[in-house]
Computed example of a mutant assay.
Amino acid sequence: MTQDIRILKTKRDIESALVTLILEKGFYSLTVQDICRKALVSRSTFYSHYLDKYDLLEQLITKTLEPLQEKFAAKYGENLDNKGLKYFLEDIYQFYQEHTDLLKALLKTPLENQQGFEDRFDQLCQLYIKELLLREGMSYTLPLELLTQLYASIVRSLMKWTTEHGPSQDLTDFTYRMHKAFLDIIEGSNSRI
């Protein structure tokens, strides 16, 4: 059991070093040696857990998104109504606030030839937004995929802004008004069917 705790602490230190270094100098400028130096671990310790810095980043992205996905699945798996979308937005907003530096680092790191954090976060949001919009008896004059992508792009833009500038009551109020307007527009378009 002690070894597991040491491994968890080592991985936490390596992940923390990665985030700090991305924010300081960017992902592509840093080396495994930089990460090891910052985390106070040897290269052999690093390589016992990760193949390279890309593997470390991939594992960190997965580690960041999995709990969010599990929370969404548990919370919204059966709650497919209008209020669910509002609560979804609140959960996302809380997620931004709890993981600001991590999200800043992950958003600053687009990956070539594979999905980075932003793409995977966007897909996760679209999945649950689509489920939440698919209420029994509702049909849309616009394609559901378009509505889903639009709402997800709003969520992503708010995440980027919040991580860069911090949360504020004005932003929170605006977010709720925008959310309500989005739902009103969707429902208004349904009444013309």
Rank of each mutant, 00 (worst) to 15 (best):
K53C: 08
T45Q: 11
L132S: 02
A73Q: 04
L107D: 03
S44L: 14
L171D: 12
I92V: 14
E58R: 01
Y87S: 02
M138E: 09
N82T: 10
W161L: 15
T10K: 13
T141K: 14
M138D: 08
K38I: 13
L133S: 00
S189V: 12
S191W: 09
K71F: 13
Q149W: 14
R156I: 05
A73G: 08
H165V: 08
Q126P: 03
Y93N: 12
I14D: 02
A105S: 13
L40P: 15
S139L: 10
A105D: 05
L57A: 05
L65F: 00
L30G: 12
I14C: 04
Y93F: 07
L68D: 03
S42I: 08
T172Q: 08
F72E: 00
H179V: 00
M178N: 13
L146T: 07
L158E: 01
I22M: 15
E24G: 02
A74I: 07
G188T: 01
E164Q: 01
L146C: 13
I154L: 13
K38P: 04
T2G: 04
K71R: 11
L124K: 00
L103F: 08
E58T: 06
T62C: 06
Y76V: 02
P167M: 15
Y151D: 04
D122G: 02
D170Q: 03
L56Q: 09
G137C: 08
E66H: 04
L65R: 00
K11V: 15
T64E: 03
T62N: 06
P67F: 01
L158P: 00
V41W: 11
K11F: 01
Y96L: 12
K130S: 05
D119H: 09
F72L: 04
R177N: 09
E118C: 06
